[in-house]
Design a protein around this nucleic acid. Sequence first.
DNA 1: CGCTAATTTGACCTGGATCAACTACGGTGG
DNA 2: CCACCGTAGTTGATCCAGGTCAAATTAGCG
Lengths: 247, 247
Amino acid sequence: MASKIPNALLPLIRKLESVTPLSQDARDAIERLPVRVRTLPARRDIVRDGDLATQCTVILEGWAHRYKFLSEGRRQIFSFHIAGDIPDLQSLHIPLLDHNLATLTQATVAFIPHESLHDLTARFPSIAAAFWRDTLIDAAIFREWLIAMGRRPAFEHLAHLFCELYSKQEAVGLAGDHRCPLPMTQTDLADATGMTSVHVNRVLKEMRSCGMVTLHRQTLVVKAWDELIRASEFDAAYLHLQNRVAG
Amino acid sequence: MASKIPNALLPLIRKLESVTPLSQDARDAIERLPVRVRTLPARRDIVRDGDLATQCTVILEGWAHRYKFLSEGRRQIFSFHIAGDIPDLQSLHIPLLDHNLATLTQATVAFIPHESLHDLTARFPSIAAAFWRDTLIDAAIFREWLIAMGRRPAFEHLAHLFCELYSKQEAVGLAGDHRCPLPMTQTDLADATGMTSVHVNRVLKEMRSCGMVTLHRQTLVVKAWDELIRASEFDAAYLHLQNRVAG
DNA sequence: CGCTAATTTGACCTGGATCAACTACGGTGG
DNA sequence: CCACCGTAGTTGATCCAGGTCAAATTAGCG
């Protein structure tokens, strides 16, 4: 089932361009990367804590997430990923994984050998820079999550997360009109925000009842974007998008 | 006062080598970087949220920290930095700062122009890789802080932070014998862990009274390292140190 | 239609926040 | 050398955001 699919990596190119300009040469080189494409069921681990990675994963369609388990079944989710993301790009320079990467929904992913990526970045410093930049934005998002965890109450925290996930999708053309897919369960949201699923549920109820946001059937609908931004003190600057979200 | 000081960047080399092996050529090239060395008082901002950076900062002596303010005086600290660290290395590829970098104690720092660093990384891919790797470890530490914020109770959270700060110092020869400098106030610890200084104080009291750790006069003394590790489920793997902490 | 996972709700509890003193200590100026 | 002052640390009393536990209710889905 290994195959080269023309333009399979288009989502990756679109994602990189949402964050860094690319030359035509660079785009072509990315499209010529050897890829192994797979479609995985929901909630399937892709790489695990402790693995030694030899390839990177590009999400082509669907959602993925990174997480880690602690004792007594506690779980922390670090990030959610959409088409175009390379959630384990870091394994290129730190092959020993310190957390898990798994699908969230059914997802189509492409695997690219580290070797090919090392070769690509050696030939195209601009792509190396774009990749590095991508991992730095990843870190910027972690910092924003840290703020939310440490200093924002539950309502603002969730509101902030919704702004982020909407903006990220909007930047690659997967969202618009103040609505977007959001296929995670309330338990996932809880493990991402350090709350309880019960409390997530109550906060969502409050958001619904104050007419700000609804989350139903895997779809987020923002009824009052400006208010949501204001309530969560969201500033998209940390996402370092090329084309800033209009509002 | 701008000057080239021979071996001024030795702490940087030592730090990089704690995390990646370097060739003699690479070490020499780093030592030849043009640096502007300054000694700054405690609590002095180095670069600020919103600045466009044109240089990177190497900590040569003393401590620094990164943080961000929210409304109503809330503050979140993201990281603490010691000799050898380049806390704003990311500005090399994302010049627009999304947080503040400041000294914590009086500190001696070296500034290196982005230009020189771009030139260096172009000539030495191995150094580029080491730098990239360093920013990735930075991100790994953020993930660990996220876990602590989201899923660890206060005692374990602080214990984990102490393990991390001890290990990081131990790796570059700044700590040993289960004791190390820790010059932050209880308010700083609170803003790093998402707690209140009052609660930090009570947790420290508990740690003291159960004979695990004392923190007095800017010095951390770990009385029961194994217990501390166990209590906080600390696993130094995420620091990706070359010479793993013995215990 | 039946089974399982996800959401929702209620009752109650607690870790950590808040508020308000009070104490210890390293300067610093007289 | 000491009196004074500002910062940091300590403590007690009280409160509440969010956790815990348990039981419905609902939504998907084969």
